[in-house]
Computed example of a mutant assay.
Amino acid sequence: MSPGGERLKDEGTRTQVVIAGGIAGLVSRFCVAPLDVVKIRLQLQIHSLSDPVSHHGIKGPIYKGTLRTMQAIVREEGIAGLWKGNISAELLYVCYGGLQFVTYRTTTQILEELPRRLPSTAESFVSGAVAGGIATASTYPLDLLRTRFAAQGNEKIYTSILDSIRDINRTEGPRGFFRGCSAAVAQIVPYMGLFFATYETLRLPLGELSTLLPFGSSDAAAGVLASVIAKTGVFPLDLVRKRLQVQGPHRSRYVHNNIPEYNGVTGTIVTIIQTQGVRGLYRGLTVSLVKAAPASAVTMWTYERVLNIMRENE
Rank of each mutant, 00 (worst) to 15 (best):
P3G: 02
T13R: 00
T15R: 13
A20H: 07
A20I: 04
I23C: 07
A24K: 04
L26K: 02
A33T: 11
L35W: 05
V37H: 03
V37S: 00
R41S: 06
Q43M: 15
Q45M: 06
Q45N: 04
I46H: 01
S50N: 14
L67Y: 10
W83Y: 15
S88D: 13
A89S: 15
E90W: 12
G97R: 02
G98Q: 08
V102G: 01
T103R: 05
L111K: 00
R116A: 07
R116H: 08
L118V: 05
L118T: 00
G133T: 08
I134V: 14
T139C: 14
Y140T: 06
R148N: 10
K156F: 04
I165C: 10
D167P: 01
R170I: 12
E172P: 04
G176R: 02
F178I: 02
R179K: 14
R179N: 12
C181Y: 06
V185D: 12
P190G: 03
F196C: 03
L206R: 05
F215H: 13
S218K: 09
I229T: 00
T232N: 07
P236Q: 08
R243T: 05
V246W: 03
P249I: 05
H250D: 08
S252P: 07
R253A: 11
Y254N: 06
N257Y: 07
G264T: 05
G277W: 13
G277F: 10
R279G: 15
L289M: 12
A293E: 05
P294L: 01
P294W: 11
P294K: 05
S296A: 13
A297V: 07
V298S: 00
M300A: 03
T302A: 13
Y303W: 10
E304R: 15
R305F: 09
V306G: 13
E314C: 02
